[in-house]
Computed example of a mutant assay.
Amino acid sequence: MENDHTNFYEEDIRELKEGLTPFPEDIFVADQAWLSSYVLPLISVDLGILWPDLKGTVVHLLNPTEPYEGVIGEKTTDFYTEFCTENWMAFRLTEDNKYAFLGKEEYFLSAPKHQHDIDADFTEHINTIRENYRRTKARFKMTGQLLPWQEDNPQSFLDRLGGELWEGNWTFMAPVPPAFEMNVDESGEDLRNEGISISYQDKEFLYVGEVSGYNYCGKGADAILMFYEPESRIVLFTYDWT
């Protein structure tokens, strides 16, 4: 299919529809089960909601348990790949809709390799975000709502699904990894996606949607943005911090 941007757009999604599955399980390839130590599955999205030709292709929005301060990958530069760098990470989606990380385990500061580089505050942050996630997941199973804080304050399953991209801190916080290319048209002539395009081998990524890490974990980025490139089946994430 051509990477035409969908006209479908919805925000502040508080009622689930077919194709949206919160707290998915068993989404990582078998030889990378360690990923569950570093990223938390928030919600799966069947891309058929946005693009009918992609029905059955299911991507998973993830919240990393780090950083405690700064941005993810900021302190692990020796372990970057062409796909994973500061504030950006990528996965390849297998045919059975599981994620294969296109980086190294040591990209994550909480990996065993870096155990001497983290302090008590960092460890407490990791423990807190995981406990918040566990509690929110348990409450969802009981109530069908996201309740990371008060039980009378449900959060959105997705803040945005489909629609156009927007320019924010994420567009200039850190360059995209070398495998990708991002263009920002500042002339004002390209009105689509505020002139922002991200591509891999000349194939443009589709913008799937976003959610705040707070909605599921009580902590995290203000916006976790997810993109998908159909030919390579690469899922790309970046994070907006205000």
Rank of each mutant, 00 (worst) to 15 (best):
P52I: 10
K104T: 07
L102I: 10
N63I: 08
E95L: 02
E95W: 00
L61H: 03
P52Q: 13
V58I: 14
D96K: 11
L93P: 13
A100K: 15
T81R: 13
V58A: 00
N63K: 14
M89C: 06
K104C: 09
T77Q: 15
G103C: 12
G70E: 02
T81M: 15
A100V: 04
G56K: 11
F101N: 05
H60F: 05
V58S: 00
N87C: 03
P64D: 03
E95P: 00
T76P: 01
N63W: 08
F79Q: 15
T65P: 10
K98V: 05
E106G: 11
F91Y: 07
E69P: 00
C84M: 09
N63D: 10
E82W: 08
V59G: 01
P64N: 04
F83P: 13
T76D: 07
C84G: 03
N97P: 02
C84E: 05
L102D: 08
G103E: 11
G70D: 07
T76A: 06
E105F: 10
E66C: 06
T94R: 04
E82P: 10
T94C: 01
A90F: 07
W88K: 02
P52N: 07
G103P: 13
T57C: 08
L62D: 02
E95A: 03
F91C: 00
T81Q: 15
E86W: 00
G70Y: 05
P52F: 07
T81Y: 15
M89G: 00
L102Q: 10
N87F: 05
P52H: 13
C84P: 00
G56E: 04
R92N: 09
L93H: 06
E106V: 13
G56W: 04
K55I: 09
Y68G: 01
F91D: 01
D53H: 09
E82V: 08
D78K: 15
C84Q: 07
E82A: 14
E105V: 05
C84K: 12
K104F: 09
L61M: 13
E95N: 02
I72H: 03
E74F: 12
G103Y: 10
E74A: 13
Y80F: 15
E86S: 02
N97T: 06
G73W: 07
E66H: 03
G73L: 08
Y99Q: 13
W88Q: 02
L62F: 04
Y68S: 10
K55R: 12
E86Q: 03
R92S: 09
I72K: 01
T57F: 03
T81V: 15
E69G: 03
K55Q: 15
K55H: 14
V59F: 04
E106H: 12
E66G: 15
H60A: 06
Y68K: 14
T77V: 14
Y80H: 13
T85E: 10
N97E: 11
F83H: 14
E105M: 10
K98A: 08
T77P: 01
L54G: 09
G56N: 09
T85K: 09
G70N: 05
F91R: 02
L102W: 04
T65R: 09
T77W: 08
L54P: 11
V58M: 04
D78M: 14
E105S: 01
W88G: 12
M89V: 02
L62E: 06
G103L: 08
V71G: 01
P52L: 14
L102Y: 07
E74L: 13
D78I: 11
E69W: 06
T85F: 03
K104I: 10
N87Y: 04
G103F: 06
F83T: 12
R92Y: 01
E106M: 09
F79N: 15
D53Q: 14
